Amino acid sequence: MTAEPLRKLTGDTDCKNGTCPTLWTKTATGDYVVQGYVITDPAELAQLDLPAGETAVRIPAPMLEEYFRGRF
């Protein structure tokens, strides 16, 4: 099975090593994929009440602000 192609939309502008938070889109569906820092703080996770199979990531606000500023 071949993975659906992803297209990079924007990334963390302060990134120094190339593996930083990034916003992608799935080209076939237009869905978004977010790469970020896994949230491990139990208090934060308890507030989210995530179901099995889901996780939460943190991404820098400037990264999304830059992307959406260019969209609207």
Rank of each mutant, 00 (worst) to 15 (best):
A3K: 08
F72W: 10
L50G: 07
T55Q: 10
R7I: 06
R58V: 06
G18V: 12
T10F: 08
P21D: 05
P21T: 01
R69G: 02
E4D: 11
R7L: 07
L48M: 15
R58L: 07
V33Q: 01
G36F: 07
L23R: 01
P60M: 11
L50S: 03
K8A: 06
F68Q: 07
T2D: 07
T22M: 11
D31C: 09
A28Y: 05
V34L: 14
T55K: 15
C20A: 09
A43H: 06
M63F: 08
I59W: 00
V38A: 13
G70E: 12
C15I: 12
L50C: 04
G53F: 09
A43W: 03
F68N: 08
T27Y: 00
F72V: 07
F68W: 15
P42V: 11
Y67I: 09
T29M: 09
Y32V: 04
W24D: 00
Q47N: 09
G18N: 14
L64P: 00
E66V: 03
T22Q: 10
L45D: 08
K16W: 13
L50T: 06
E44S: 11
P21Y: 05
M63G: 00
Q35P: 00
G36D: 05
C20E: 02
N17W: 10
A28H: 05
K8L: 12
M1A: 09
V34Q: 03
K8T: 06
V33C: 02
K16S: 13
M1N: 12
K26M: 10
T25H: 01
E65P: 00
D12Q: 09
T40D: 06
Y37I: 15
R58P: 00
Q47S: 11
Y37S: 11
F72L: 14
Q35G: 04
A52C: 02
T40Q: 15
C20G: 05
L45W: 10
F72S: 13
